[in-house]
Structures are given as C-alpha cells and as structure tokens.
C-alpha cells in the first residue's frame, strides 16, 4: 500500500510540473492561435541564462552571496526572456498576421532551432547547476499508518507547490484581468480585436513574456532537479500528451491533464512495465492521450470547434 501511495504521489508531483510546461503551450495558443513548439527551447534558454548569470555573478561576488547571485540570475534570465518575446513579435509574428495555423506552427519550429542554437552558443553546452537551496534528501512519513512509511521527496513537493501557485496565479490573470481578456480576444480573431482597439503587437509581446515567465520557472525547477543541459528541451515534449489530453484551449485542462499523465505514466511503468520489458512510461502517456482523442477530439476540457459553412 505504501508503495502504491508513493508512486501516486510521485506521479502527482511530476504531473504538476508537466502542467506548468503545458500551461506555456496553452497560454500562447489561446492568445495567438499558435501551437508553440519553441516552448521547450524557451525553457532551455531561460534555465541556461539563470544558471550562467547566477554562476558569473556568484564568482564576481567572491562566492559570498548565493542569494544575491540567484536574484541577479533571475533578473538576467527574465531580461533574456523579454528580449526573446520582443524579438519573436518584432521579427516573426508581425509579418504573419492572419496566416494559417500550420504556417505559424512551422515558424515556431524554426524559432525552437534558433533558440537552442543561440542559447548554447551564448551560454555553453555543458551541464550547469542551479542551486536555489532545494532540499535533496527524502523524508519518510506516516510510518505509524503504513508499513515502512511513505517516502516523500521534499524537492519534488516544493517544486509541485511552486508550480501549483504559478498555475493558480496565471489562471486568475487570464480569466479575471483586462489584459487576460484582451489576450483571449486576440486569440479569437486578430482583425476583430484590432478593430476594437486592442494593440495586437503589444498583446503578443505580453503573451510571449508570460510564456517566458512560465519557461523560467519551469527551467529553474527542472534545472535544480536535473541540472541545466540540452535534455531539458525534452521536458516540453512530455507536456505534449498533457495538452492533447487536457485540450489546447483550457487552463484547467492543462492542470488536470498534467496530473493524469503524471500519475498514469508512473503507475504504468511500475505495474505494467515489468510485463512488457519496461521503459514504457514515455509512449504510454501518448497512448493515454490518443485514447482520449478517439472519444473527445478536442481533449477533456477543450472547446468543441464548430465551423459553419
């Protein structure tokens, strides 16, 4: 029983992190109708910038103040993400107003390659660490209730809590603020939004900045957990089945989808894996998403799109 609970908890905590990355996809899609394949590259660039700025400033400060170095790192990385958002709007999206969704999708693929290349050129391709003081050792809880207790990883727990706070904050921002409503209006119809005075260019910069912020938080959490290096890009791929499952247009869908995928992949690996040779968790997540697509093509929470002719 204890092991089952551990697996469930592990899945839920991982799932919350998937939700965070999935939220980056959903935000940009809702605000600009673009399925942003560059989200993983943004996580990489944000984490690399944070790690390197923090490392350089720590060295400049004589290694005395890790806290200050981390603050400088976060500010530096935030500035880089703003620069990315501005450059994407200025040099890419501005030229592509009212273009087909497929065109915009292909453009984000190109942006991903550019960001991956530039990120590694400027900040390096070694493994860098982010030390924000996350505890690394596990704690055993409920020893009186369950034989052997339930092991909880403190780092995972804190990361999941941080992700939950950010997800909650973004949900409120998106649903309740004027900027959030403007973002949704732009997503529905570029020209209609412009005609009622919503500045398209500014809105796009804002939404890419928010996606950059999400990428920065995800980068710090994943970077602290597994080190900052190129493979962090693949974390974004883990969020793909989440958005398929939850629906591309739904913030709650990203949250619930993340949790379902997180728990599902862990349970499948542990309980089904041994029967089929193991190593199934990555593709099993896609199988779950595909099953949902068979019955609900718009995902669990996505909007059903009806085109009238």
């Amino acid at each position: 029983m204890g092991f089952f609970i551990e697996t469930m908890l592990g899945g839920l905590m991982t799932g919350m992190l998937y939700s965070l990355v999935a939220l980056g996809f959903v935000l940009i899609f809702k605000a600009s109708g673009v399925f942003n394949f560059a989200q993983g590259a943004m996580v990489l660039v944000a984490a690399l910038a944070m790690a390197r700025f923090s490392e350089w400033s720590n060295a400049a400060l004589g290694g005395d103040s890790l806290f200050l170095a981390n603050v400088i790192g976060i500010i530096g990385a935030g500035a880089v993400m703003f620069l990315v958002a501005w450059a994407v709007e200025r040099f890419v999206l501005r030229k592509l107003v009212n273009q087909e969704g497929a065109t915009l999708l292909m453009v984000t693929l190109g942006i991903a390659y550019v960001l991956e290349g530039l990120g590694q050129t400027f900040f390096g391709s070694e493994i860098y660490s982010i030390n924000v003081g996350m505890p690394k050792d596990p704690v055993i809880m409920f020893e009186g209730l369950v034989e052997g207790g339930v092991m909880i990883n403190k780092e995972d727990f804190i990361a999941a809590a941080l992700a939950a706070v950010l997800v909650g904050g973004l949900t409120i921002f998106f649903q309740k603020t004027a900027i959030g409503r403007a973002l949704r209006a732009v997503a529905d119809d570029h020209q209609a939004a412009q005609s009622v005075g919503i500045p398209l260019n500014k809105t796009w910069v804002i939404v890419w900045c928010v996606a950059g912020l999400v990428a920065l938080v995800a980068g710090i959490i994943w970077g602290s957990k597994m080190g900052v290096q190129f493979s962090i890009v693949t974390v974004a791929l883990r969020a793909l089945p989440v958005v398929i499952l939850g629906g591309l247009t739904s913030v709650p869908g990203a949250i619930v989808g993340g949790l379902i995928i997180g728990v599902g992949e862990k349970l499948s690996e542990v309980y089904l894996g041994p029967f089929v040779g193991g190593g199934i968790e990555i593709w099993f997540a896609y199988v779950m998403a595909l099953i949902v697509l068979l019955f609900r093509p718009q995902g669990l929470f996505g909007e059903k799109i009806i085109n009238r002719v």
Partner: peptide, 17 residues
Amino acid sequence: LLPVAHPGVEQKATWLQ
C-alpha cells in the same frame, strides 16, 4: 533489468521500483 528511455531525464518510476 530496468530500462530507461532516451535521454534518461525521467527515472522516478525506475527508482521507486
């Protein structure tokens, strides 16, 4: 035998086992 899929960034289930 505990396989880990490429590139190996997700191993939680493996280590729980």
